[in-house]
Design a protein around this nucleic acid. Structure first.
Lengths: 209, 209
DNA sequence: TGACGATAACTGACTGGTCAGTTATTTATC
DNA sequence: GATAAATAACTGACCAGTCAGTTATCGTCA
């Protein structure tokens, strides 16, 4: 591999190492992952890896900072531009299968759950800045829809958990079982149904489809 | 600590070691957990631990066999004795918060997710014998309720995932964040709402509360 | 009752291997 | 030839699994 001379080159290399590290942490877990293997996966040596990151823990921290935020922004963009609840659910039905199959969110989920107790501070930070934010976004959406009379819901922050539940289940299922055969579900159908279920459940009483 | 002479004594000791191991695996992950610490947690030495289990991996396997099955049976008992869908959802609303707060299921979830790729065969076995069984139980319940005209649902096996989703989300939340402060939700309210949401969503059209 | 092996539960020091992090050296690029 | 990117050999700490030795407990016999 060519040497990285410019700052741009170094950024690309850094990114490459982060991807390699996420893959190794995903497959082996933080503790069993070897720095040598992470470096080799990016066609570099262990020594070079240490030019870009201070320690294994530093690498873990950077992975989360690097991969979590963009996904949150994507999610925020999807939700905040939806005119109402029904529209937001339809978008979620299209967005969730894509995210589960093609984004790094499932891998990140598995890594963060598996090593949460080894880095409590990092994980708590993540909860505050990403997870709580997701629930707040959905909660806010529900409150606006309730105010406008589009839906009927008593506790929006609880409803948010019910909406997110199947997404988390499918993400973890993907992360844990994607490599094994059988047991997979058609995610598009699943989330289309999920959207319909949520619409019907929160429809104001007196409304019939 | 007294020595274990009888077979009964040894069974108790074995059980004690399994509990200790689950706790250590839960807190550190399989790879970072130390056999010495597991033994110490049960007030025994590392050598003694090896009298009861062949290896660290053997211990992992035994933990799952020991803790997963009883919980599945509990769940089966809860569902199969319910006369119908509405009753089953009410039972779930009472059962889920208890299970999440007081059973070892959340700990088991975290351990199995975190180390799934290190023991693919064990985890696949678990999926077939426990997870698929859970989905089949709920799927069967839904089909019977549909046949009797109690509910209206097109794809019971997908609906099962929607019902289970929030349970998994809450279980993982408990496992990952229970020790940290804030961010906790009233599980009783959450699952009471979840039951109502499911009832309303699957109620035959034309029915209004 | 109490002393005396016999049994096996239990211990912890030890070994061999692994790996995070360091550094002296090599080498690509200007 | 100067700069700094990249390497690979090295070090020290850590730990799963082993095993030779220790000791609690029990049955037996005086």
């Amino acid at each position: 591999m060519q040497r990285a001379r410019s700052d741009d080159d170094k950024d690309t290399r850094r990114q490459l190492l982060l991807e390699a590290a996420l893959d190794e942490f995903f497959e082996r877990g933080f503790s069993a992952a070897r720095m040598e293997d992470i470096a080799r996966r990016a066609d570099l040596s262990k020594g070079t890896l240490y030019l870009y990151f201070d320690s294994k823990e530093d690498l873990f921290r950077e992975i989360i900072a690097h991969f979590a935020m963009p996904n949150l922004e994507l999610f925020r963009g999807m939700l905040t531009t939806a005119p109402g609840f029904v529209d937001a659910m339809d978008r979620l039905a299209a967005f969730a299968p894509f995210m589960i199959r093609h984004s790094r969110v499932p891998k990140l989920m598995k890594v963060m759950i598996g090593d949460s107790h080894n880095f409590p501070a990092i994980i708590l930070e993540y909860r505050k800045h990403v997870l709580d934010e997701v629930f707040d976004l959905i909660g806010g959406l529900l409150e606006r829809a309730k105010a406008s009379g589009e839906i009927d819901v008593e506790a929006p922050h609880l409803a948010a958990r019910i909406i997110v539940g199947p997404v988390v289940l499918s993400g973890i299922w993907q992360a844990v079982f994607a490599r094994t055969t059988g047991g997979d579900v058609d995610l598009d159908s699943l989330f289309r149904m999920h959207a319909e279920v949520m619409k019907k459940a929160f429809a104001p009483s007196g409304t019939t489809s």
